[in-house]
């Protein structure tokens, strides 16, 4: 195993809580949070293995589910469908980049690799791009954030829950360092101000389920104006 986070074979060191992996494997997790988990799984063979174990539990639970008799004629009807050709798979219009930064499924939701992201400036040193997840409006906000090297995200806390995964570069927060693939989860208890790595900054995927509140002395005044 290599320790260089820039290497393509780098394995993440900070993982989602097991309960989130279980929600994902059971199929009970919302789509925005699932996007972060699945993107982490693309970069983390260890968590893929944990999820495979959860799916094995799902297999046993399915086998033990109280059976309900299918409608009369269900099998006969199904047998007549077996020879029908399957609908052709959707044509993948976007060519697969040779060394993508954004793993699937994130690349599909963004509509291209990192170079194609239409950033907008949030505040000095921080750009964001909101990702549309799900067809109906929901309480989640899913976005990519690009933080310039050495820039600190304004001190803030969360009313709800925030799940962040490093996509490129890294950041430090509360004495810990996060590299590509690393995940951190915070809730209302955490009042923090992450700082992007001085050499090259950081791109993160973040899902929040409630607006965050700025808590620094000056930032509190800005709260009504800065829509995070």
């Amino acid at each position: 195993m290599t320790l260089d986070p820039k290497s393509p074979a780098h394995h993440p060191a900070h993982h989602p809580d097991e309960a989130l992996l279980l929600d994902y494997a059971a199929g009970s997790l919302d789509e925005p949070t699932s996007l972060v988990i699945a993107t982490h799984l693309a970069l983390c063979p260890d968590c893929r293995r944990v999820v495979a174990g959860h799916e094995a539990v799902g297999g046993v639970l399915l086998e033990e589910t109280a059976p309900v008799e299918p409608a009369a004629g269900a099998l006969a009807a199904l047998m007549t469908l077996l020879d029908e050709p399957a609908a052709p798979p959707p044509v993948d219009a976007s060519p697969i980049p040779s060394a993508p930064i954004l793993p699937r499924p994130l690349r599909d939701y963004v509509g291209g690799d990192l170079g194609a992201v239409p950033w907008r400036k949030l505040i000095s040193g921080i750009d964001v791009h909101d990702i549309v997840v799900g067809s109906a409006p929901n309480r989640f906000k899913t976005r990519l954030m690009r933080i310039k090297g050495g820039v600190a995200v304004p001190r803030h806390t969360h009313e709800g829950f925030e799940l962040v995964m490093v996509v490129e570069g890294g950041f430090s927060d509360g004495g810990r360092h996060y590299d590509r693939g690393d995940v951190t989860c915070s809730d209302g208890e955490v009042d923090h101000s992450p700082v992007a790595d001085a050499d090259g900054g950081c791109v993160c995927l973040a899902v929040t389920d409630a607006p965050l509140r700025l808590t620094g002395p000056l930032m509190r005044l800005l709260n009504p104006f800065v829509k995070f």
Partner: peptide, 19 residues
């Protein structure tokens, strides 16, 4: 639930291979 399920693509060049 009428939602998509985000999943990995085992053939994605960005996928970090299994140990």
């Amino acid at each position: 639930r009428r939602a998509r399920r985000p999943e990995i693509d085992p053939h994605d060049p960005a996928l970090v291979p299994d140990r």
